[in-house]
Design a protein around this nucleic acid. Sequence first.
DNA 1: CCCTTACCCTGATAGC
DNA 2: TGCTATCAGGGTAAGG
Length: 283
Amino acid sequence: MPELPEVETVRRGLDRYTLDREITGTEVLLPRTIASPDTPEEFDFGLQHTKIQNWHRRGKYLYAQLVSTGTPQAAGWLGVHLRMTGQLLWVESHTEVHKHTRVRLFLGKWEIRFIDQRTFGQMWWIPASKQPEQVMTGMGKLGPEPFDPAFSVDYLAAKLQKSQRNIKTVILDQTLVAGLGNIYADEALFLSKIHPSTPAGNLTKFQIKLLRESAIKVLETSIEQGGTTFSNYLNVQGTNGNYGGMAWVYNRTNQPCRICTTPIEKIRLGGRGTHYCPQCQAS
DNA sequence: CCCTTACCCTGATAGC
DNA sequence: TGCTATCAGGGTAAGG
């Protein structure tokens, strides 16, 4: 499940390989992957004879600024969300086409290939007359980036104070802070020694400060590792990251806690599997 | 407004 | 061996 570190790793790869090359054509193998415009034909028409200037990430969304080839004219935006199982690979076009391939963007003899087993992933083409968040509406509702000064202790405390929901569910809410998913939510709570069932409003200022710092730290660590090893996450070169082997609790049910050797427990919160150490995260 | 639940989907795995 | 049930969860929409 690509979260902020995985999406950031993909963004860096795309920035390295895909810029300033003409998009010569597209092939949409699964039309419902294209969230906008309405048809693959319009998507193709929008992208043809453009080139990517740069890639941006906001939360778990990726979007690229496009310009027309030949002229410096703005040509809109390309947006991508990987959701659960999406992969963006930079491959030569003769590479065998995997059966879960949903969209191909041809850039000369290379291509950006969107592969997505469970088909929740989406792509958008947005005309230059609009801002990306007008069309990728979820992006407009995101809370601050975790690394942004706006994600301050005071901001977080004010938000948490108002809620009696369990803290695990709350920090997964992308309108609170953008980019945490199930893996790093569990990891951040472990590093903070906070039980995932704790009502958000019950946390002390000290715990909130620690939670904020832990979230930032675990995301930074994972970015350094090139993202996780879990799920079918791959970077643009088709390899996965190293974070999974370092995980404190995620996907470690019944395995010994790396701090106290107590078996890691798994419960269900907000419909999501939640891993924690009952000893280290007692309160 | 706040919160919970269902849904989209495919493949891996568990249990009989 | 093969069948069925369950689980994985990001984001969004519907419902209480």
